[in-house]
Nucleic acid binder design. Sequence first.
DNA 1: GTGGTCTAGACCACA
DNA 2: GTGGTCTAGACCACC
Lengths: 123, 123, 123, 123
Amino acid sequence: MPPYEFDPNAPIYLQIIGEIKKRSVRGVYSPGSKLPSVRDMAREMGVNPNTMARAYAELEREGFVFTRRGQGSFVTENRRKIEAEKRKLAQSAVARFVAEVGELDLSGEQIADLLRDIEEDLT
Amino acid sequence: MPPYEFDPNAPIYLQIIGEIKKRSVRGVYSPGSKLPSVRDMAREMGVNPNTMARAYAELEREGFVFTRRGQGSFVTENRRKIEAEKRKLAQSAVARFVAEVGELDLSGEQIADLLRDIEEDLT
Amino acid sequence: MPPYEFDPNAPIYLQIIGEIKKRSVRGVYSPGSKLPSVRDMAREMGVNPNTMARAYAELEREGFVFTRRGQGSFVTENRRKIEAEKRKLAQSAVARFVAEVGELDLSGEQIADLLRDIEEDLT
Amino acid sequence: MPPYEFDPNAPIYLQIIGEIKKRSVRGVYSPGSKLPSVRDMAREMGVNPNTMARAYAELEREGFVFTRRGQGSFVTENRRKIEAEKRKLAQSAVARFVAEVGELDLSGEQIADLLRDIEEDLT
DNA sequence: GTGGTCTAGACCACA
DNA sequence: GTGGTCTAGACCACC
């Protein structure tokens, strides 16, 4: 378990935001539950607390997280918001895949092959 | 064709490289054919010529494009290289999709829905 | 009366102090009268008793409130002090308004409009 | 001309945002014009460039400013947006004044006095 | 203990 | 030159 693996070509704080959203969507953090403190989470992911604070602040701006002064940050209690995020993540994965593959001018057979690959990998 | 749409959060020259590769893979630029000059392509895509030059340089470094002094830049004549690029793009699209969706903890049914969406969109 | 509405971006205890002063100025709490206990007031305003205790302490430091051991906290009996507070609050409201509006470079007509708005709202 | 005067009880970056908006509203920065660079403005106002960058980022998030990579930040070209800001600033000054004064339970005469004070000061 | 803000200084990609 | 990001370390108010 390394400190964490970040893509050096994308802002770390954005990757953290994505990670926290995914964890919430998977139920690792349940609705309304307290997130680790900025400092703890920063230690866990091996980043500077400032960077983590920025990620938390952005999540709060989006309404995905709320903060109680002196108590910490919490995942939204709004299950719909989390469900919506889940759908959004799934749909944007679909959209990106379709866009990328659509530009390659593949034959029907080639596309079928790709879909078979995906099915295998996802089960 | 509009000046072009770039994601302002990712390096433009990388997006250009991707675009030129995709055009080659689709046969818009056939193997060995001459690419538009840096200046023309920059104008077409609404980009600073410096940025375009950097994209061409990178494509040349990868061997995907070669330059004949005084004549301009050309797509590689190596059809295998282009085919390999096509496969690589397709496979990396698959890999990314699988990675993204795998992190969402979806049910088998939800996954099937996504695959259906993709199939529809790609035909 | 709802738990109370506080601006989460400003110290709560300061907002409480302001609220208690305003109540005194309006005569909700008359000079020399007993204030609700820290605990009761905290419950009324939906606030941590620590926070309320801090507000009371600050009000006492300013001489706006005094405490009799074992009996509780009381609004000052000094009517002048309360009148002075009233004038001070009114004058600082005027000063702030003038400062804010003065920076906007409004026309005489626009200013007149604002004054008309105020007059309407205050009657 | 001191480096600048900030209220130590409010976040500097918020005060900077307000200052830049007011300048735009007054026409000090006209629509579409380039703002001083983050570094220059930071020097002018005597704050750390990071703090200024945060203010600029926030202004961009609000759509009040836009940024061209490598070229700098610019006031929105949307005159309506600037006019709307002007109205918003004036109206919120009115609203605050009305709220503050309304809680003091003043007599009609006292209110008239305050309005006279304001009128004097603003002309 | 918590998050919020600020400074300082550094590096980077982009134009 | 521009803005964007990150680290480091500090201080603060609030709970």
